[in-house]
Amino acid sequence: MSDGGQGGHDWPLWEVFVRAKGGLNHRHVGSVHAPDAELAIRHARDTYTRRLEGVSLWVVPSSAITASDPEAAGELFEPAESKVYRHPTFYDIPDVVKHI
């Protein structure tokens, strides 16, 4: 963030999310610098949707994003590996039984 008066510093960083078309999630595509949310949307539009890439935009100050710690990836994500019963293919159903 600039000191708001002197120095000509660069603007803060924003993360940009684009919805490619109706029905899809917004997806992270990159970032822009902007002094405020409104111009961040304009900058995101002028940078990331020049080739019809989107129908909707989100911008979020990069500083507002909390990311999980890669060191903790093991404890966060590996326990899910053993929960195979959450997947439909886990269950044995005879082929003759339909619509299930």
């Binding site: 610098h33 304009r42 900058h43």
Partner: peptide, 11 residues
């Protein structure tokens, strides 16, 4: 003045 504005003006 910044890259983002360069893109806007070109558009």
């Amino acid at each position: 003045p910044v890259l983002e504005v360069d893109l806007s003006l070109a558009n």
